[in-house]
Nucleic acid binder design. Sequence first.
RNA 1: GGUCCUGUGGCCGAGUGGCUAGGCAGAGCUCUGCAAAAGCUCGUACAGCGGUUCGAAUCCGCUCGGGACCUCCA
Length: 492
Amino acid sequence: MTYKDHKLKIYNSLSNEKEIFIPLHEGYVGMYVCGPTVYSKVHLGNVRTFMSFDMIYRYLLHLGYKVRYVRNITDVGHLVDDLDEGEDKIAKRARLEQLEPMEIVHRYTVDFHDILKQFNLLPPSIEPTATGHIIEQINIIQKIIENGYAYESNGSVYFDVAKYNQDYEYGVLSHRQLEDMVGNSRKLDGQSDKRNEQDFAMWKRADPEHLMRWPSPWSDGFPGWHTECTTMSTKYLGEKFDIHGGGMDLKFPHHECEIAQGKASTGHTPVNYWLHANLLTLNGKKMAKSSGNNILPGEILCGESPLLSKAYSASVTRFLMMQTHYRGIMDFSDEAILAAEKGHNRLMKSLETLQKLEAGKISTLDIPAWRDNCYGAMNDDFNTPILISHIFEAVNFINLLRDKSASLIATDLDLFRSLLSEFVYDVLGLVIESEVHDGHIEKLDGTINLLIEMRNAARASRNYFVSDQIRDGLARLGIQLNDVKEGTTFNY
RNA sequence: GGUCCUGUGGCCGAGUGGCUAGGCAGAGCUCUGCAAAAGCUCGUACAGCGGUUCGAAUCCGCUCGGGACCUCCA
């Protein structure tokens, strides 16, 4: 099956409706996702957003699309606060840690890649940086000035929202009216070079002590945050492309400004489908670096957090996140991830069982119908929770097959195996974990099997003191024995 | 204050007019020396109050709670 056999529906933030996905060029998808600002470690909420788009990327690939997936690194231009008057986030961090800004950028870029790899996110096709595209940004700014939608003021360049709103419509994505915003935004205390409060910076003149600076026609300075995404998406995906994604909190103003810049420079809307991943909450509150209400991905993997009772694997974390739809708010808790771990492990054991099954003479389960249900879920705006519910139906199927209460002919069994593998590993991105990685697995397994033989000998002679001593001793080491009909198995 | 989203069984979390996901926990059962593990079965929920309808968790109105954005955040 390929994309031609599917009607993929995607919820488009522009229309606030699910729309049938039709790419600009058949068989090809251009997708841009706003990446992180690398001024500190990514928290779990950041990971969730990128994981949502990783799942979307994986599903598009699964359907046979050739996808160019661009995700940027913001390494300059993202200001700390207040309407373009604050300090650059990276510059601030560099000052506090007494490092070069680029040391900060590199440190946290490495951290970002490391974490995402641990959570099994596929790397994007291109990962451009803002500082690597200064010239391109200057060119776009110039073009927008020439088109009359930006102005230079005291060495900085601002986008003229009011002028733009005369010819186009500012607020099409966030569904706001400019007039409503005018009365509602906060007054600036300091002096501003802007004509109107809604105007946003595309180029900022750098103060003398500012380290990150580049020459431009207007001043030695640095680009504004919104400009980099417009520049890099245009450069690698064209003036018009299929999908633009990001966190819900970027919808306004960041994405709204991108649309405005795109239209102001080219005259047409840059993106067909806007996707927004919802946020992760912790204790019912938004996870945010600035408020301190956050948990780091690494803390989950090692269990070192007052919020957690133990460590959880990356795959379990992924499973937990995939159990919530990407557009829904997800509240993270120890209880939730503990429940996810049990479900995840049950699924993984079942998949092991599936490998051992043998084909029968007739099929008593309707695998094609099951397959259609799975695709139906994913084609309905990437509904992974429903997909997972179907996967647990499959667990039930596997149990029936194992107990000979159902059977499948070879072609159906092969189909079933490959579909489950594709959905679980390729689309959801879960992984089988082995907690012992040091090459002593065979010796350990041999030792445990020896103990199992001794225990079963003791049981046969009704020496339960010894047999329970072995079983309980192994349990204390984290090795669990399972007495099943065929004998005794173990897992750790 | 403005714009918008949301409120589902003990917990997490789908579903948007009738067919009432799924996971975790819980109960019962099977297996078992006992247990654990595993499997099977069961639980009938949609904040409150009105309205529309033959019929609403699902549509409309109001009330109450939670949240997001409006200022940096994925």
